[in-house]
Design a binder for these strands. Structure first.
Lengths: 177, 177
DNA sequence: GCAAGTATAGAACAAATGTTCTAATTTGGC
DNA sequence: GCCAAATTAGAACATTTGTTCTATACTTGC
């Protein structure tokens, strides 16, 4: 997956460089050739991912219509549904809670959300998770786990102080102590 | 011709607006439709003119590759072959004079030259042509007349003071007084 | 090891697109 | 009015290009 994410980054920077150098956007095949991929379908695949993540925009069937959305990471609104304290069990939000508790919204760069929907956020209370680089006051982005199986991972994003300490840490969703 | 030049301007501004609005260049047919032309060949025709004039640049057979050359009027080097005084006959420059008298070069925006080659410039002495809006010290861009017929016109460009008093005046090439 | 999800290949198709060719129309000078 | 040049039209063609489909690795959790 590290390799995959690398290809997407490569494609993204290739598009940017191409546009700066040539003045117009590259085609799918030009991206493929420029990034060492042998077929346009792979590029198409990653372009869909990038578009879903809001990093690029393009129009269907329009040639050379790829544009970079200036904001690498178009902020996405994510609701803060509550707080998470040390040692407390984490409940998964029920459907009714979604619309009801429209408590607070925070903006998350789309690099993190990766187009995922149904994300929610929790505020951390207490410093019991310092080992996971999570401190008191941090906000954790959670991905609801549909299955009962525990041990699932969720992308978590630390937002404390001013500068967005954007560390792609993956932390345990459930806890059990 | 006034109408023709108008279409070229229209195409040019359409390309500019399209790029700003959509983020990528229009196709030949999109230009045609946007400018009220029924066929791509006409647009192709004018795009060739615009490219020859240095106002746009594009790559052969590349879709949506039209770029505006920021400088509306990429300066073209034109040699100043001599001076023109009131009442003097104007000689047409012989071929040998071209390379020999590399006296001085001035830059002329390509809107004026329109891609024409073999242009040359003369500096005006005396104010005998004030009626034609030409004053002493002005520089006149001349187009060599291949035929002996007199009465030909040449685009003339007044460059005096700082601000380029760009007036598309057509003035008589021969004079006879 | 197995299964599921993810990523990569390759081929093939339909549509979009740049280009070229020829003819019709207009313009401007004589 | 007549002629040459410039401009506009229309059609047709060869490529390019976005997209889709299927199949093959590759990872990951169990």
């Amino acid at each position: 997956m590290a390799n995959a994410s690398h290809l997407r980054e490569k494609i993204l920077t290739f598009i940017k460089d191409f546009r700066e150098r040539k003045g117009y956007a590259p085609t799918v095949r030009e991206i493929a050739q420029g990034c060492g991929v042998t077929t346009p379908s792979v590029v198409q695949y990653h372009l869909n991912q990038l578009e879903r993540a809001g990093l690029i925009s393009r129009e269907k069937e329009k040639f050379r219509s790829i544009s970079l959305t200036g904001h690498r990471g178009l902020p996405v609104q994510v609701p803060v549904l509550g707080t998470i304290a040390a040692g407390h069990p984490i409940w998964v939000p029920s459907a009714d809670m979604w619309s009801a508790t429209a408590a607070r919204l925070i903006e998350v760069p789309s690099e993190i959300t990766q187009g995922r929907k149904d994300l929610y956020a929790l505020e951390v209370r207490g410093n019991s998770m310092v080992d996971a680089m999570i401190a008191d006051g941090d906000i954790v982005i959670m991905e609801p786990v549909s299955s009962i199986k525990n041990g699932d991972v969720a992308a978590c994003w630390l937002k404390n102080e001013q500068e967005v300490t954007l560390k792609k840490v993956y932390c345990e969703d459930d806890r059990v102590r």
